[in-house]
């Protein structure tokens, strides 16, 4: 796709393209979009890695680690669909995303639950812990022994 056809496709670029140096001959809008999508996926992966190193306790790491990549995967799969557009790819991608969206919350919930129940929580980072409040209230109600 040549620079002229890019200018046709993207009207906003057309006046600017007059004074600008010509785009490279093998530039294509599709490649640019695919590049942006791949970079988005890569950035979200990087953020997940950095997040699980930086954040101080399991529950915080859980947020950084499990979920931004779902969006990253969406971006990368959209890039694949742009490069190889076919029905077979589309159905497989829909399946991948469905399973990812179904299973990712399960992972997060199970890990979070185990972390809370085994006390891998940094209490000093919590501004509010209503679960502990409710547990304490229930224990007081059932057995008036020494809690805390």
């Amino acid at each position: 796709m040549s620079a002229a056809s890019v200018a046709l496709l993207v009207p906003a670029l057309a006046p600017a393209a007059e004074g600008m140096p010509p785009l490279p001959e093998d530039f294509s809008v599709r490649d640019a979009i695919v590049g942006v999508l791949i970079l988005l996926g890569a950035f979200l992966s990087l953020a997940a890695g950095v997040g699980i190193v930086r954040f101080p306790d399991v529950l915080s790491r859980l947020h950084a680690g499990t979920k931004p990549q779902v969006l990253g995967l969406v971006a990368v799969l959209a890039a694949i669909l742009l490069e190889v557009p076919s029905w077979g790819v589309l159905t497989t991608i829909v399946l991948i995303l469905t399973f990812q969206l179904l299973t990712q919350p399960m992972t997060a919930h199970m890990l979070g639950r185990a972390a809370y129940r085994t006390d891998h929580v940094r209490r000093d980072l919590l501004i509010d812990d209503e679960l502990a409040d409710d547990i304490a209230r229930r224990e007081r109600a059932s057995a008036p022994s020494d809690d805390d």
Binding site: V34, A42, L44, Q69
Partner: peptide
């Protein structure tokens, strides 16, 4: 998850 993203990116490229 990062490996999945990377595999996908390789396919797209």
């Amino acid at each position: 998850a990062i490996s999945m993203c990377a595999l996908g990116a390789e396919m797209a490229v």
